[in-house]
């Protein structure tokens, strides 16, 4: 039972960065990789810091896998699967996104968020 939900104009996205959308009460982080003309959507809630901040992380890739680094304690999450690079047991939901007629749409069919108590175990203090 999945339908595409219209979110915003493609111009509302930030090239090589993220924004956050509110969809049916859920916070969704949407990232735009301009270089590859790709868009990704994952949950905005950072399970490590328990704050809604992932959309404000920096993006890039690790060994070709597109990722976002949490702005809080710098754990990395795959933009494709939502799985955390440092601890494969932790992940955030990942959602299908599409670009059509200059509009961004997301499909909300998500596994539940797995939580983990905050820990700095993998971060390097900046």
């Amino acid at each position: 039972m999945s339908t595409w939900i219209d979110v915003c104009d493609i111009d509302d996205l930030q090239a090589d960065s993220g924004v956050c959308a509110l969809l049916k009460g859920k916070q969704i982080a949407i990232f735009y990789l301009q270089r590859r003309q790709e868009v990704y959507a994952i949950g905005n809630f950072d399970p490590f810091s328990e704050a809604n901040v992932l959309s404000r992380g920096m993006i890039g890739d690790i060994g070709d896998e597109p990722m976002v680094a949490s702005p809080m304690y710098k754990q990395h999450f795959s933009l494709r699967t939502g799985v955390c690079f440092e601890d494969a047991g932790v992940s955030v939901p990942a959602y299908p996104v599409r670009l059509e007629n200059g509009r961004v749409a997301v499909m909300l069919a998500s596994p539940p968020v797995q939580q983990k108590s905050p820990s700095l175990a993998v971060c390097e203090m900046e």
């Binding site: 990789l33 270089r35 920096m58």
Partner: peptide, 10 residues
Amino acid sequence: KGLGCEVCKQ
């Protein structure tokens, strides 16, 4: 190469 990451970008 690649897309970069938070380390090199910063």
